[in-house]
Design a protein around this nucleic acid. Structure first.
Lengths: 338, 338
DNA sequence: TTGTAGGCGTTATCAC
DNA sequence: GTGATAACGCCTACAA
């Protein structure tokens, strides 16, 4: 492997001059520059990135923590973040926590060990007190996940409002017995959604049917189980709120299989506007998040903080959702599949 | 940021001894070891990974190149690879090429610049002649994508056979005019599929309807366009072969919307057995790939080569698929939605 | 405009 | 068992 020294020798110049050429710095005669470029070419020289990192104390790399990349919401987030980051000259590394507190901390270690310059967290497993100390090692930006009053930038939607709206929509469609189906994480975000859901019930003077609710549903499979649970134990349920299009799809699928009429027997709302929700039959009402915008903003905020470490650390960027009404909730009306 | 030197000073010992403790090497008295561990703890010391990398010439990192992470097939692949790699103490970095030759080469640069120890390629944009030289910088393993006779390990399915089988299945169901819908990449893999498709037609003495075929379909949206194309210009088509569940889903969706009967008017097969294909109505016949097995094997082969650079470089690992027959192809028969 | 030299934090080698 | 010391490859004052 050729080093800068080899190039310098071959070109008959010093390491310094070669380094200047590598880094596009001024004060190099065009002629010598050419000589060096040729030497680099001849030797197939490429700068060793570990050495550069060690020397410059920068990695030009950002870690993005997320639960699992197979969740299309996070896949889309990464997709956009990576695009944006590369525009700024940053690499993105994908870190799947699989909802494990330990893994989350392991990945935050990347910040300490200087393998990355900054971190984006899209979910939170550990308590904030545990995470906060890592801020000493580099900036962290929250995207999607959020909390009250923290000294880090946060980019997110108002999940309370989103949940409120879709619940109101269910009620408007005539649902009286709504089951609340969630994934069981006890994050602030989950809490927000539940708050919004409960607020809607309260406003319309409907009871919260805790027994008929579920807090362990994450995947399509779980959604199917949820439906069977409802059918067998709580057939009174006529509406389902879920925090995930996958789960909603599972519920709808199984309900249809069982001969239930969706939405007339059971109306279902999802979350995230994944392709799936549109393609299901019937198509599933859901909440559209401005994923690309949030991703872009997140990277922008992080990069800005990387460039200017004493930037305002506490700003919040709140994006608005869109309730997409589809056939899984349009009761007793003649509609075309959107 | 504390360095090894700081720890050494605080413990009243030398860097060497500290280094020994860090790396679990013998020849350190238990007592001094404890002193050092305490010092590390006190200073919040963590080894600087750039320095280690520079010194050891290893990164313990593997790059996985793929077209786009939003494609569930690749997301699943990454999911498994990461799990396996971490068991071996390797990190995985996800590199999206977006089918760009330039990006693919940019990422292969990681190998040259020593940012990663090895590379997995799951798709191929550039010609092999362009990629081959990078082998000098470190091992490359192909997963999913493959070619004839190359000096790198390859882990993949027999796509020719898979395509052959699903085409035969279409024909067995009574299809006489089958449209071949692909994504237009001219990789060996795509060629293999087409070969299998053509072989089936030939065996059953059916013509290849080139005019009614399409080579630009990748996403759900494309699938919808494909259907409309067929409806408007080639209504004679009664079967569609696609190399992607997304495209198949788009075709099925649009066909149902247009009032066609799937499968009786139009039978459709997909590829990859994504959740989508099961949940669609009607559910979509598809090819199941042993994703996790291929991913595991790929990482194993790569790691083995990393540990023993002169291992057999040319081995092939071929996995078998499974044709999952579902309702999108079961013509004129009474079946339940699987 | 170019070169010299020191150090980023670690580990391997070799003495003691 | 332990500790100097010399790299790993690069960048950057500072000198020339």
């Amino acid at each position: 492997m050729a080093t800068i020294e080899d190039v310098a020798k071959l070109a008959g110049l010093s390491r310094t001059t070669v380094s200047r050429v590598i880094n596009d710095q001024p004060y190099v005669t065009e002629e010598k520059k050419q000589r060096i470029l040729q030497a680099m070419d001849e030797l197939g020289y490429v700068p060793n990135s570990s050495a550069r990192r060690l020397r410059s104390q920068r990695t030009d790399t950002i870690a993005v923590l997320l639960p699992r990349i197979t969740n299309p919401f996070f896949a889309n987030l990464i997709e956009s973040m990576e695009k944006k980051a590369s525009q700024w000259g940053y690499q993105v590394i994908v870190c799947q926590t699989h909802d494990s507190e330990k893994k989350e901390l392991d990945y935050l270690q990347l910040l300490k060990t200087k393998q990355v310059d900054g971190v984006v967290m899209t979910s939170l497993c550990n308590d904030w007190e545990v995470i906060e100390p890592y801020l000493e090692s580099g900036p962290i930006v929250l995207c999607n996940e959020y909390m009250e009053e923290m000294a880090v930038p946060m980019v997110h939607m108002d999940h309370r409002k989103a949940a409120y709206e879709s619940t109101i929509h269910l009620i408007d469609q005539g649902c009286k017995n709504i089951s609340y189906v969630s994934g069981g994480s006890d994050t602030y975000l989950a809490e927000e959604r539940k708050t919004g859901f409960l607020k809607a019930l309260e406003e319309r003077a409907l009871p919260f049917l805790e027994a008929a609710s579920v807090d362990w549903a994450i995947h399509v499979e779980d959604g199917r189980k949820v439906f069977n649970h409802i059918k067998d134990h709580h057939p009174i349920i006529d509406g389902v709120f879920t925090g995930s299009d996958e789960v909603a799809a599972g519920v709808v699928y199984e309900a249809v299989q069982a001969g239930w009429n969706v939405p007339d027997d059971l109306a279902v709302v999802g979350f995230d506007n994944q392709m799936l929700s549109l393609l299901m039959f019937p198509s599933v009402t859901t909440i559209d998040q401005p994923v690309a915008k949030m991703a872009d903003r997140t990277i922008e905020v992080l990069v800005r903080q990387l460039m200017n470490p004493r930037a305002n650390k506490a700003r919040r960027y709140i994006y608005s959702h869109k309730l997409l009404v589809r056939n899984s909730t349009l009761k007793k009306q003649l509609v075309t599949n959107l």
